[in-house]
């Protein structure tokens, strides 16, 4: 085959290489014809097309690594965004009212007012000594339960026998262990020799709620107190006669 004397220019060779590498349009027929008849052009086109293929292949791993890195960065950014939104929601969420039950003294707990009760989901009980916060579930029952916490000081007196007791018939002043709220408590103290006596109703925190100085030695008390554990004391002019306790429950 006769080679065409006039070689094609560098632009045409470059265009042919691009086409051969499926990276450009088909060259003109005259260029195709020339290359078909020119071994020198064929050689340079073939050589460079292979070199550029090699160059592209060498760049591929870098490109794929770049793409992988971009993907990872995007995933991390997305995750961080989701976390930020979640934290924002948590931050903006109205804070639940927490009630702290502080110890009034060593052996008693403060009785929370009924208005404060049964409204909260979360109550933190702080133990000052250990500065430890305990999260308790079923929180609305806690305040209620606090009213039933025994008073250690009074508990010791409940079962005590007092030497000065002058009661001949204790049954007359026996109070049932469990009473209903709104019920009337009746006591007959006529058997007590000491006529200067006082009947004191005490809450489980040790607070005196009611003091009765019965003149006719009969007591009738309407139990309109909050449900809880209550203590009562019978005191003469110079001594404790008797201490007892009862649970006041809500009417069923």
């Amino acid at each position: 085959m006769d080679e065409v004397k006039q070689h094609i220019d560098d632009n045409a060779i470059a265009g042919y290489i691009d086409w051969l590498r499926s990276d450009g349009p088909k060259p003109e027929e005259s260029i195709l014809d020339h290359v078909a008849s020119c071994s020198s052009c064929k050689s340079s086109i073939l050589e460079l097309s292979e070199m550029l293929d090699g160059q592209d292949k060498a760049e591929e791993p870098t490109e794929s690594r770049k793409r992988k890195m971009i993907f990872i960065l995007r995933a991390v950014a997305l995750l961080a965004g989701v976390l930020a939104v979640a934290m924002m929601i948590q931050f903006l969420k109205p804070e639940k009212k927490s009630v702290e039950m502080a110890q009034v003294n060593d052996d008693s707990l403060r009785i929370i007012a009924p208005s404060e009760q049964l409204e909260t989901d979360t109550i933190l009980l702080r133990n000052d000594a250990e500065a430890e916060v305990i999260d308790i579930i079923q929180h609305d029952t806690i305040l209620y339960a606090a009213n039933y916490v025994p008073n250690q000081g009074l508990e010791a007196l409940v079962s005590a026998r007092f030497r000065s007791v002058t009661l001949d018939n204790k049954n007359n002043i026996m109070i049932p262990g469990v009473l209903m709220r709104g019920e009337e408590l009746s006591l007959d103290l006529s058997d007590i020799e000491d006529k200067e006596i006082e009947f004191i109703l005490v809450s489980n925190t040790g607070e005196n709620l009611l003091l009765v100085n019965p003149k006719e030695l009969k007591i009738e008390i309407k139990l309109n107190f909050d449900p809880g554990l209550y203590y009562w004391k019978l005191i003469s002019s110079d001594d404790i006669l008797m201490v007892g306790k009862f649970r006041l429950n809500n009417e069923e």
């Binding site: 560098d10 632009n11 060779i13 470059a14 265009g15 290489i17 691009d18 990276d23 450009g24 340079s44 460079l48 070199m51 550029l52």
Partner: peptide
């Protein structure tokens, strides 16, 4: 053509 190809020529 691609400039890269042209330069390689």
């Amino acid at each position: 053509s691609k400039l890269r190809t042209y330069f390689s020529v």
